[in-house]
Design a protein around this nucleic acid. Sequence first.
DNA 1: ATTTGTGTATTATATACTTAATACACCAAA
DNA 2: TTTGGTGTATTAAGTATATAATACACAAAT
Lengths: 133, 133
Amino acid sequence: MKVNLNKREPVYVQVVRHFKEQIAAGNYEPGQEIPSRRELANQLKINPNTAQRAYKEMEEQGLIFTEGNNPSRITKDGKVIGTVREELIIQAVDAFITSIRPINIPVDDLVGLIKEKYTEIERNTRGDSNDRS
Amino acid sequence: MKVNLNKREPVYVQVVRHFKEQIAAGNYEPGQEIPSRRELANQLKINPNTAQRAYKEMEEQGLIFTEGNNPSRITKDGKVIGTVREELIIQAVDAFITSIRPINIPVDDLVGLIKEKYTEIERNTRGDSNDRS
DNA sequence: ATTTGTGTATTATATACTTAATACACCAAA
DNA sequence: TTTGGTGTATTAAGTATATAATACACAAAT
């Protein structure tokens, strides 16, 4: 488990997105246990309260659920899980288009740059698992 | 002059990027006057202090210069101007790759989505000027 | 001379986020 | 029974940002 935290965005938001990414990439099974608040806080070197806030957010969004005082778990709702991936992709593409739009670069040049960067990364991670926990 | 301000990012950073985009798109001539701090603040409905902070930032980056108590102007340094465009593009592409990487979507699917969104916008803005001031 | 508009600077207040330090109910394991 | 790990909640303090309200030197226009 490792998350590159930036300073601009609230940490709890970044933690939520991290779990969404893990779910989207299929690295979490439905119903799978996730680390406790304190455990996560230790791993990410953040405050337990911040971890709690992230989990609370995820619970409200139906991404995880908590029974009794057991560690929270990934939702078993397949519909929710299926939606996460699409949501993340659309969000990323929209943000990108919004940021690149004012510059007026030909779409083909853009595609060229993306393919270049993207495949460069794929070369570096060939054969790797997605799970960097 | 219109800037869509979001709440996450500091306003002064967004203002700086706005001017960089204008420069990159060729909507500003070298040496061209830009609005005064107070004028910009009025146009964008922000605080004059925030406008001042943005201009100070731009001045430090060599994007604009100020002589006496005249309105600031876009730099005449062609090298600086030429760099802005490339910088913005690389920055946008890098941010996009970083955000989309964990999801493991095939690059061709990604390119498809981008072309779709991008050309959709181009259709809607056909014949428009870039200048939305 | 006065007014107006430049850039520039200072001080104070408000908000969002993070961290810190506890606290408590619950339950399982030793 | 005690210990330790769950989730959950509260209060306080610190930081960055934005806004508000001024202030001052300077210069051009009236």
